[in-house]
Structures are given as C-alpha cells and as structure tokens.
C-alpha cells in the first residue's frame, strides 16, 4: 500500500511539472500586463527542439537548452509583433500557437517513434533513503527541483523586491510606470521572453522526461491548462503549485484508472482533465469582483509611449 502511494505521488509530481513550468512563465508575462496565448505553441516548439537535439547529439542537457531556446525565439517573435508593431495580443498569441503546432509537426515528422536520451532522476544521498518521504521528495529529476526553485524565486521577487514592484507597476499602470521613467516596452520584452523560455523548458520536460518520445501535438492542451492555471491562481505564485498538483493528479489518475482496467470507457477518463479545467474556470471566474481585484489592470492592453 505504501509502495503504491509513493509511486502515485511521484507520478503526480512528474505530471504536474510541465504545467507548473509553463504556468510560472505565463504568470510573469501576465503580471507585466501582456497576454500571450502562444504557450501551447511554444511548448510544442520546445518539445521538438529538445527531442531532436537530444536525439542527434545524444546529450540531454543540450536538448533542454535547445527547448528553452526554441521557446525564447517564438516569444521574441510574439514580442516584436505585439509589443513593437502593436498587433492585437489575442490574435498574435493564437497565431503563435497555430505556428508552433505546424512547425513542430513539420520538423518532428522524421522523429516519430524513435528514442532519445532522457533526463535521469537524481537520488540525493541519505535523504532519498528516508522511508516514504525519501523517494517522493528527494529522488526526482533535476527539472522538478528547478521548477520549485524558480517558483520560489518568482514569488519572492514579486512580493519583496524593488524589481518585482517595478514589474507589477508596469502591469497595473503602464502610463504611471512610464512617467516614472521605467522602460515599459523593454520590461515587457524581458517578461515575455522569460515566459517563452519557461514554456520551451516545459516542452523539453514533456519530450525528454514525461513521455520520452516525440508525437505530434504531444502536449495535448497542457499549454492551455497552464493558461487556465494562471487565472485559477489569481496571479499568486504559490496557488499555481496547488493548481498544477491538482491537474497533474487529474491527468495521471486518468491514465492510472485506465491501466487498472476500471469499467469506465477510456475516452471519458482521458477527457476528465479538460472537463476539470472548464469546471475550475467556471468556479473561479464566477466571482468577477475577485478576479478584477487580482488581475493586472493592463492585461492585454497595448502600450504606446506618447512623448
């Protein structure tokens, strides 16, 4: 029984990590007032870039870096189009997702069904021998720890640093931030590219650790779930973790219950994370006042300096 719970918890943490990585990135993007709906596309680009690089070079770390770089490049494209050229952010983000899907399918056509080196788990000496806690907490792969560290740093930066305050100012009142002399567009560029790098990293985690292979559309809507998580968290970092674990559990349970051979048609189980997202969104959004209270006031609004 204990063995079962341990392996269950390990799997849920693994399933929640790509969601968490992508959601942290998008949280920072939205905090500075930009809505990038391209998360799914950037994740897919990151997944194929990471997989292809790891497969060709045989070096996992290079794969992860390539994933980050791919997400970064796509988000730079988004930033140029929506921030410098002032195109509609919703449309640009959607187009970015469509582009990422098509691009990854094109590049990935030759990589279907072949293996690549995977990200190994690290077993921290001594600590991983602690019964129950050891295998769950101290025997994960490095990216799991990295995701938690980044989450902590982001939460701390927003809450207690001057830099975080500037970011929040840009997201809540870009005119005021501009009047104080902060480079609004440059800050938004930086945040958008951070979001892209995180989405690329999430994609790399998908194709190198979660399901170590490449399949077309392998992220299966996780980029969109990550977007929903940001709303769910009401733009508060630690709630992202709660949401990511919840959805990680839903996604894993769908697989797990299927494997147990429970007499529920597998299609229904596979659909549960998506149904869950709708329900959670409805419950969270119902209180419009609460959302308005937490949402960065300039979310999705273009900024044009008038001097």
């Amino acid at each position: 029984m204990e063995q079962l719970i341990v392996s269950l918890l390990i799997s849920i943490i693994v399933a929640s990590t790509p969601l968490l990585l992508a959601a942290i990135g998008e949280l920072v993007v939205e905090k500075v007032g930009v809505l990038n709906l391209g998360v799914e596309g950037m994740m897919l680009a990151g997944a194929i870039a990471a997989f292809a690089t790891a497969n060709v070079t045989g070096i996992t770390v290079l794969g992860v870096l390539a994933g980050i770089f791919a997400g970064l490049l796509l988000s730079l494209l988004f930033a140029i189009i929506s921030l410098t050229l002032q195109a509609n952010q919703t449309a640009t983000g959607l187009a970015l997702t469509i582009f990422g899907r098509g691009f990854s399918a094109l590049v990935g056509a030759g990589f279907v069904g072949i293996p690549a080196p995977t990200i190994p788990k690290i077993h921290l000496p001594l600590l991983s021998d602690i019964p129950f806690i050891g295998p769950v907490v101290f025997s994960q792969d490095p990216l799991v720890y990295l995701s938690l560290i980044i989450l902590g740093v982001v939460a701390w930066a927003f809450k207690s640093t001057h830099f975080g305050l500037i970011l929040r100012a840009v997201g809540d009142s870009h005119d005021a931030a501009h009047a104080l002399g902060y480079p609004v567009i440059a800050i938004r560029y930086g945040a958008v590219m951070f979001g892209g790098a995180m989405a690329g990293l999430a994609g790399a985690y998908m194709s190198l650790a979660y399901t170590p292979m490449w399949a077309q559309d392998m992220t299966a809507g996780r980029g969109w779930v990550a977007l929903a998580l940001v709303t769910f968290s009401a733009w508060r970092p630690f709630w992202l973790l709660v949401g990511a674990w919840f959805f990680g559990a839903l996604m894993f349970m769908a697989l797990y219950v299927q494997a147990m051979g429970v007499a529920i048609p597998s299609a229904f189980l596979s659909a549960t994370p998506y149904i869950g997202t709708v329900i959670v969104l409805v419950l969270i959004s119902r209180d419009a006042r609460r959302i308005r209270l937490h949402r960065p006031a300039m979310l999705g609004r273009p900024f044009l300096a008038r001097s």
Partner: peptide, 12 residues
C-alpha cells in the same frame, strides 16, 4: 460565470 471563452471553447 464570466469564464474566458478562449479556454472553455478550446477545452470543449
């Protein structure tokens, strides 16, 4: 419920 139509329509 004020739920964002982008996300709900895609989930459907």
């Amino acid at each position: 419920f004020n739920a964002n139509e982008i996300l709900t329509s895609l989930m459907f």
